[in-house]
Simulated assay, not measured.
Amino acid sequence: MNLEKLQNRNPAMDILRIVAVLCVISIHFFYHTGYYNTTADNDLMYFATVLRTLFSVCVPLFMILSGFLLCNKTLKKGYYSGIRKTIIVYILVAIACIIYKSCNGSYTLTTLTFFMGIFDFTGANYSWYIEMYIGLFLIVPFLNIIYKNLD
């Protein structure tokens, strides 16, 4: 890793990212434990509801963090190549998810559904976030130009 980049790194951003990741894991924990199908009629459920409410900052926290880290991005040669790693990882994960879902019988695998699952962001269950991130990445330079030219 580039030593200069490492020295200029803001550890607060890494701490916020860790908090956001833990909140995402916690939100998904609640989803897979039947919390949403249980009546809140005791102290434990009220406590769980408070925790779930606190953890719901995960996506807004990632959005704010992304906005902060992308606020100085400008439209220049090579900017869009920065999304390459994210797209490659997404495609690999989507392929793995499609193969897994087709093996367990919850997905009908054809050539069309395979490619559509990747390109319409339905192959991987939580790929909506990648879709949103790619959209944000594409428009950030233009949003920055607009913002910096406001009176």
Rank of each mutant, 00 (worst) to 15 (best):
L6A: 15
L6Q: 15
Q7S: 14
R9A: 08
R9G: 05
P11Q: 07
A12R: 12
M13P: 00
R17L: 04
R17C: 01
A20T: 09
V21C: 15
V21N: 12
L22V: 13
C23F: 11
S26H: 03
H28F: 02
F29I: 07
F30V: 04
Y31C: 03
T33H: 03
Y35R: 02
Y35M: 01
Y36H: 08
Y36R: 04
N37I: 09
T38L: 07
D41H: 05
D43A: 13
D43Y: 13
L44H: 01
A48E: 12
T49H: 03
L51V: 12
L51Q: 11
R52F: 11
L54F: 13
S56Y: 13
S56W: 10
V57D: 02
V57H: 01
C58E: 10
V59E: 07
P60V: 06
L61M: 15
L61F: 10
L61V: 08
F62E: 02
F62C: 05
M63L: 15
M63D: 04
I64H: 02
L65T: 07
L65R: 01
L65C: 04
S66W: 02
S66M: 08
S66T: 12
G67T: 02
F68C: 13
L70C: 13
C71K: 15
K73P: 00
T74V: 12
K76W: 00
G78Y: 05
S81N: 11
I83Y: 01
T86H: 05
I88S: 05
V89R: 09
Y90T: 01
I91E: 07
V93K: 03
I98T: 06
I99Q: 09
Y100A: 14
Y100M: 11
Y100K: 12
K101R: 15
S102Q: 05
S102D: 09
S102P: 06
C103S: 14
N104K: 14
N104P: 00
G105R: 12
G105D: 11
Y107M: 01
T108D: 14
T108S: 13
T110Q: 04
T110W: 01
T111M: 10
L112R: 13
T113N: 03
F114G: 05
F115A: 02
I118W: 00
I118T: 02
F119S: 03
F119C: 08
F121D: 03
T122N: 09
T122C: 05
Y129I: 07
E131H: 14
M132T: 10
I134N: 04
G135T: 06
G135Q: 08
L136P: 00
F137R: 01
L138H: 00
I139S: 00
I139M: 09
F142R: 08
L143W: 06
I145L: 14
